[in-house]
Design a binder for these strands. Structure first.
Lengths: 172, 172
DNA sequence: ACGCTGACTTGGCAAAACAAAAGTCAGAAG
DNA sequence: CTTCTGACTTTTGTTTTGCCAAGTCAGCGT
């Protein structure tokens, strides 16, 4: 099985490590099971505290912690609401930042569907409401090609310092 | 911010929970930081034990545990190798199952690049080797439409039991 | 057989994640 | 002001993840 082609100063793996890795940074925010599943429920439309507790099947304490963290991180926002005759409460709504994590969770779902599900294809179908066709997560280049693992290259980003000897160490 | 449209028996969130969720199942396999980062290194081309230890920056004990688990789960396979004058050792190679998790990790990376990275766009560029264009993770339907959160629908999979009252509870 | 040494295994510990239970808070109505 | 009760906060305990250090194993060469 092939791998990503490491280009430029990254080609020698012995000379660098992924020290500012965006994956690792993402995991700091959403790297717990309860955070991922809380986000799943937000995508399914949950807004209210008790609903997150019930549907994620976690304790109120954990839900409160996760919701607070995800709100602080910017993935969710607290929006006041008030049922008639009730007091003001808060709903947790996805932000754009939160919504943009969807491909990662969908890709995990797709992978789990394929390799881990009890039933072939998994328990749920995800489709495009507009045309009814099944939805998948693709890795594509800007020219529209679908790219597999062996077709990927990775280089130090241009916005960083020049690819001097120091730079390959500070990579992702 | 919108959410996925829950269709059919799934429309009432109060009547079901994601009990066989493929995301949750995936997290059982790769839901630790060390597993995710081990997979990252496999995508970057690492094969050998010491390389995983060094580049993931985890202890040998954790590397051994994670590599054993990922091998048992089918994401990696152990392949014997022997440097001249040395004893037989094993490399850990990606399987198709392992390679197919790439979109999830790339999507996490993409999201981290956008929202968490110290530098705009993140420290590394991922491109299509064949044409040089930047690579992204897209959510698309089979008709080729790019679909955002609000454009998604989800239904109980056809391969499951009829969408009776019992069925919506056993979903993902 | 012994020596070598990288790849583990094991034991003890700390931190993080999470559960259970109890308690507190907040904002409304009366 | 009191009452209500959902949304937390806190405390205690368990499990999981990961670290450190020491030890064992495995397969080669001599």
């Amino acid at each position: 099985m092939e791998s990503i082609t490491l280009q430029g100063g990254l080609s020698d793996r012995d000379t660098w490590r992924a020290t500012s890795c965006s994956i690792a940074k993402a995991l700091e925010v959403v790297g717990t099971r309860s955070a991922m599943l809380t986000m799943r429920e937000a995508y399914y439309g949950a807004h209210r505290f008790e609903e997150f507790v019930r549907r994620v099947e976690i304790t109120e304490a954990v839900a409160a912690t996760r919701l607070r963290e995800l709100t602080a991180a910017g993935l969710l926002s607290r929006v006041p609401y008030q049922d008639p005759g009730q007091r003001t409460r808060h709903e947790y709504h996805l932000t754009q930042m939160g919504a943009d994590l969807l491909p990662a969770l969908l890709a995990l779902m797709q992978w789990g569907d394929r390799y881990l599900a009890e039933q072939p294809g998994g328990p749920l179908n995800v489709t495009h409401v507009g045309c009814g066709e099944p939805v998948t997560v693709d890795v594509r280049c800007a020219a529209g090609h679908e790219v597999d693992l062996g077709g990927l290259g990775v280089q130090v980003s241009r916005t960083r310092k020049t690819p001097a000897s120091a730079s390959p160490r500070a990579a992702r």
